[in-house]
């Protein structure tokens, strides 16, 4: 197990170093991520939603569906905890 996890880590390290070699530089304004889709949000959020906080505008409107999913995740976590830890009848109160 030890050597296996070591191998996995070395492989991941190599892969990540390889991958990051072509990423845009730190804080590069011309990076694709900074120029392609996101400017539209910044430029339109006030016009479209009257919401100056662009993050909120994206979170709840442009990509509101992601947020629905995210809330569902935490809801599911609540249900999961309830399912796992729910006491059965007659069980002791606490450990």
């Amino acid at each position: 197990m030890k050597w296996f996890s070591a191998l996995v880590m070395v492989l991941l390290l190599a892969l990540m170093l390889y991958a990051t070699s072509d990423l845009p530089d730190h804080a590069d304004p011309q990076a694709p991520a900074n120029t392609y889709v996101s400017p539209t949000y910044i430029e339109n959020s006030v016009k479209d939603t009257h919401t100056p906080n662009v993050v909120t505008a994206i979170l709840a409107d442009y990509r509101g569906y992601d947020t629905l999913g995210e809330t569902v995740v935490i809801f599911a976590a609540g249900l999961a905890c309830a399912l796992v830890l729910m006491k059965k009848a007659g069980e002791k109160e606490d450990r």
């Binding site: 400017p39 430029e43 947020t67």
Partner: peptide, 19 residues
Amino acid sequence: AAAQYVNPLPHVLILTGIV
């Protein structure tokens, strides 16, 4: 102007990720 602000989209994604 878009250049004035950092890219907000990853922030949204990461909000989701943290949750």
